[in-house]
Design a protein around this nucleic acid. Sequence first.
DNA 1: AAAGAGATGGTCT
DNA 2: GACCATCTCTTTT
Length: 190
Amino acid sequence: MAAIRRTDLARSASVVAPWLLNKLLVSTVDGRTVAGRIAEVEAYEQDDPASHTFGGRTARNEVMFGRAGHLYVYLSYGIHFCANVVTGPEGSGEAVLIRSVAIESGLDDAAARRGDRPRRELSNGPGKLCQAFGVGLPHDGADLLAGGPVRLLDDGVAPPPHPLVGPRIGISKGVDTPWRFRVPAEGPTT
DNA sequence: AAAGAGATGGTCT
DNA sequence: GACCATCTCTTTT
């Protein structure tokens, strides 16, 4: 189990994003532990019109300007939470949005939070995975490398050599920047 | 299988 | 007061 070093995350978001694929996300919240492998991410950098930090520091995006390896959580559309890994050197507001995770353990606990659904629909979206992992605003700013309730681990599985790359989803600016990265599908996606 | 619309609240101009 | 880094349900092919 190779440790993830903070310096690994201190590179720019668009470099860290594909590197995060296949890393493990683990949460222990309310006595439930859920673990899964990161399957899809998006990069958001400072001089990026789609990024929350584009307009400079605010109370909400403060964490994105802090040290790499922390968690940035925000409320999306008034309903869902989204989880990001802060990247880059301190002072540069950037992060990687986790868009999809393949749950590997704690499936029953995730299902208890998400309701009875097909297995792959438990965490195949940024809002869905936050619900499945019990991640919310209280975790905004949490250190992912410090053994806290939400953590990032490397169990030795390499990122895919040829991730699927494309434009980011759900944004209205920076729509042509190809900063979405996904683990290629293994088999039929039915 | 695809398309459309409603829910719902913080953040920033 | 507009704008969202979304999800789910319902309706239509």
